[in-house]
Design a protein around this nucleic acid. Structure first.
Lengths: 213, 213
DNA sequence: GTCTATAATTTGATAGAC
DNA sequence: GTCTATCAAATTATAGAC
């Protein structure tokens, strides 16, 4: 909260976030972070008492933000409108704000974050967020659709490889696709049930590419 | 190919795959793998000449399998039926076979795999697979839907938290949801265009939870 | 606040006996 | 095929000067 340093602490956070996201948490050493900032490792330890405390430092405000979202959603009726509003607000935390990439860091470091306290907390929060998105319909389909609607927001900007697309466009498209998924939650399976197509069978032998034993 | 060892090589692969997936590639040391097998590190180096060669060893057949799928898809017309068949076959490589978890390893180690040769190859293959799933419709929406249909298969078994669900059920549900997404590809945006909802605006101020600057 | 210097540990990998 | 012993390098973290 105190800016006395001249923002060195913030610069460390920024560089660490970038390198952790690009290369992974474990593969990024404190030496590398220090070199990029033209300081020594010891300087880093003045600002953060350990490597994973750097992660904790930029994770906490995200946790708060998600808690706000979940708390708000719980106060609303479990309607499609609530879900639509919830995912839209969530997308804002992804595309706007000063951390458009904190969640990307999480996506890229899921495994390592299992053993980090901050990571476990975040996992829990995302679970709750997904649960909230399918409140009132705990069918497996609904759970999967809710999770995928979050993925739609997360992956929209690397899964879409159209050349000159803007962040605003990505957000818009992500929300459109997410809304398609969320719209089917809570409905009595009118089309999403796929009654008797070939999608419920086995390997559909012979019709596809060479099936190997 | 030669089984003379008594399957030690295969045991190493199995344990490594498990630990890499649970803890991450970087965080899993060769010592840990060796201890779990009650052998020494040196024994590991008899079977594999480096750590990343262990990865390569169980990645290669997956690459082949995906190449087969892509090649087959390219020989087919870019119809919904082809896409449906393609994703179903892909799901089979996820849920059946002796490696139901190799793709999970990839999902959990995306970042580290950027710097591994085998990982880069796999990334390329998955890109091609996604492209194939939206062939004939290169709109951003189609690209996102195609990617999400793959995610549906990948995440179906951890995103769905229903107590006593079987793998077969997970596969079925994943394909249903994937098919919902793929069904909208190639269509002239009849519903998926979301013409003028609130999903295209900004923060929808005031209506959602407390928006912070 | 930042530095030099270094401790303490771990890691991937090799050499050579059996 | 597996072992003991060891290497060279890298890593997180600390101590203390300026």
């Amino acid at each position: 909260m105190k800016e006395s340093t001249g923002g060195t602490r913030e610069r460390i956070q920024a560089v660490a976030l970038e390198l952790f996201t690009e290369q992974g948490y474990e593969k990024t050493s404190l030496r590398e972070i220090a070199e990029r900032l033209n300081v020594t490792k010891a300087a880093l330890y003045y600002h953060f008492k350990s490597k994973d405390e750097i992660v904790t430092s930029f994770v906490n405000d995200r946790l708060e933000r998600i808690d706000e979202l979940v708390a708000w959603a719980e106060s609303q009726p479990p309607t499609r409108e609530t879900r639509r509003e919830l995912i839209a607000q969530y997308a804002d935390t992804m595309f706007a704000g000063d951390h458009p990439s904190v969640m990307r860091f999480f996506e890229q470091n899921q495994t390592v974050l299992k053993s980090l306290a901050a990571g476990q907390q975040m996992r829990g929060r995302m679970m709750r967020l997904a649960s909230e998105l399918c409140r009132g319909d705990d069918s497996p389909r609904a759970q999967l659709r809710a999770a995928l609607s979050l993925f739609a927001v997360h992956t929209s900007w690397f899964a879409v490889r159209t050349p000159h697309i803007t962040d605003a466009d990505r957000r818009k498209i992500a929300l459109e696709v997410a809304d398609e998924l969320l719209a089917r939650i809570g409905q009595p399976a009118d089309d999403g049930t796929a009654p008797a197509t070939e999608a419920d069978g086995g390997t559909t032998p012979g019709s596809g590419p060479a099936a190997r034993g």
